[in-house]
Simulated scan of single mutants.
Amino acid sequence: MQDVLTYFSANGAEFLRLLLEHIEVSTLALAVASVIAVPLGILCSSHPVIERISVGTPSILRVIPSLAILIFLVPLLGTGTLPALVALSVLAIPPTLVNTSLAFRELPEDVLEAARGMGMGPARLFWTIKIPLAFPAAFAGFRTAATEVVASATLAAYIGGGGLGEIIFTGMGLMRTDLLLVGGVSVAVLSPAVSSGLSHLQASGP
């Protein structure tokens, strides 16, 4: 424990930099995945054929370990943040896509019919009725994706993408238990903290 305290006292600024890098690449990956998965999920909710193709492809990629995807991307994209961002985005797309599609597909038809009966057009129906009703289930998929991405972002350091993984890989290379504890515990705390924070954000929403 003393070694851990010594690390923070001597490397506090470096730890903060790596933590921010970890959060940054995770946030970017979730943003990219959301831009792709949310509109596609809405489209899939009314087109079963598109859903089978759209859900199946990233789900197959998801079975491949993230480290294997990173190694595959290095010859194409080089090292650094970009290949890590692509790999993490691939990881985040399936849960976001599946939950969004399911959320919009299972909207209560009686509520939609009542809204149409009140004279709501497609655009107003979508923004004022469908989105609020579908949001909780769709957001649950985003929350799952966020938890997985934050945990997997440690691998970004393997190809020079920064983040808390640098501490873990350095600790492995130097056989330093203090660094392994600092890096491992930080990720282990950050991942559920993000999930909990998103849950509270959802609960406090309108």
Rank of each mutant, 00 (worst) to 15 (best):
V185N: 14
V25P: 15
G171A: 04
V194H: 09
A138H: 10
N99T: 01
S66G: 01
L107E: 10
L181R: 12
P65K: 11
P192G: 07
A134D: 00
T81L: 13
G171E: 02
A188W: 02
L18R: 14
S191D: 04
T6G: 15
I168S: 09
Y7F: 14
L73S: 09
F169L: 11
A145F: 01
Q2L: 09
F169N: 10
T170V: 00
I129G: 08
I36Q: 07
T170H: 12
I168M: 13
I23L: 15
F126Y: 14
S204V: 04
P108G: 03
L5W: 15
S46A: 14
P65I: 01
L91M: 13
L198Y: 02
A84C: 02
I71S: 13
S152Y: 06
S204L: 14
I60Y: 12
F72P: 01
P122Y: 02
V55I: 15
V55T: 13
L82W: 10
A114W: 09
E21F: 10
D178F: 01
T177M: 13
E106V: 07
V185L: 15
S196Q: 13
V86C: 08
V98C: 11
T144N: 01
A157Q: 08
L164E: 04
E113C: 08
Q2R: 15
R17L: 06
G119R: 11
S46Q: 12
V150Q: 05
F142L: 10
R124A: 13
V49E: 15
S54M: 11
A193E: 03
V150G: 01
L133T: 05
I42T: 05
Q202T: 05
A29E: 00
E24I: 10
S26Y: 00
A31Q: 06
E21I: 10
A115W: 06
M175R: 15
I129Y: 07
M172T: 02
A156H: 08
L61I: 06
V111D: 01
P94R: 08
G141P: 05
I159Q: 11
F72Y: 15
E166P: 01
L70T: 04
L73H: 10
L107Q: 09
G184T: 00
A156E: 02
E166S: 14
S89L: 00
A68P: 11
F139W: 07
P58Q: 11
A68C: 10
G12Q: 07
D110C: 02
L97M: 06
L112F: 10
L30W: 07
V149C: 04
S101P: 08
E109N: 14
L76V: 12
I50A: 14
A10N: 14
G117L: 01
F104Q: 06
A137V: 13
V74L: 05
L133I: 07
V182Q: 08
E106R: 15
T154R: 13
L88F: 03
R124T: 11
H200L: 12
A137F: 03
L82D: 00
G78E: 03
A123Q: 11
P48I: 06
E109T: 03
G41Q: 04
L61K: 13
F8E: 05
A193Y: 00
L190R: 05
